[in-house]
Nucleic acid binder design. Structure first.
Lengths: 123, 123
DNA sequence: CGTTTGTTCAACCGCAAGGTTGAGCAAGGA
DNA sequence: TCCTTGCTCAACCTTGCGGTTGAACAAACG
């Protein structure tokens, strides 16, 4: 497909796949086992797993005739890094805007109606 | 579409949209302005913005005839929370597995060939 | 060996995503 | 008022995704 970041985001855009990841975070599982709670065919689940695997979120090993699926947590860092980068950048802008507005406030009476309803605490 | 988490992940699965977010983290921008670096029509960019808006990643206000686009950093937290939850859970499993293996190691000679090739340092 | 169990491959279908072009609308500027 | 600028809406096309069913493969078990 595209770059890995795209593949990872795309893989997690599906609720079923996110649920699979959630369950794989608890314990490794086979395909049938994984498919059980969903109302779709085993083949569909196998496809979902392929998507997760291509994204690097999951690996499949062989153990007898089963194919246990294992979650790889490392890829998460890729996303986290991307997200944090721009979140921080955007918040930095907010902070600077605050400074500018504060300065304008001390300089003279508000010239253009500041309008900043949205608060952002480090939640 | 689906739930917000799906919309957000889906929105960021596109490289062009991620690049837009990256640029909007630096400064708000109009649609034409945003469209300039990409080799697609302005309408396509407008569509991309709609996707980002529906995901809650972006808001559009009106300022004269322009339509400045503004990045909303808050939605990032939604993703970060989801990611961190399962990443931590998976790492917790690793940690416990280490304990189990260590115990098995002290108890007696390895009974079932441990086999743990993958290292995981806090990279 | 043949059968059962677990999983994948292949072909197909319906639908949504991302792209295009052409028209329309909102707001300033001549 | 007419024109230009900035953007969105509408119709269309092509591609990819998630689902299906049917067949095939791999490994244990009788």
């Amino acid at each position: 497909m595209d770059d890995q970041l795209s593949r990872v985001f795309s893989a997690l855009a599906d609720p079923t796949r996110r649920d699979m990841v959630a369950r794989l975070a608890v314990a490794d599982a086979g395909v049938n086992e994984l498919a059980e709670p969903y109302d779709v065919s085993v083949q569909a689940v196998s496809k979902h797993l392929k998507v997760l695997e291509d994204a690097g979120l999951v690996t499949r090993t062989r153990e007898a005739q089963r194919r246990p699926v294992h979650l790889e947590a490392e890829v998460f860092d890729l996303m986290t890094k991307w997200i944090e980068r721009y979140r921080r950048q955007a918040e930095e802008r907010y902070r600077r805007l605050d400074d500018v507005l504060a300065e304008m406030d001390t300089d003279s009476a508000a010239p253009t109606e500041p309008r900043r309803p949205r608060e952002r605490g480090a939640s």
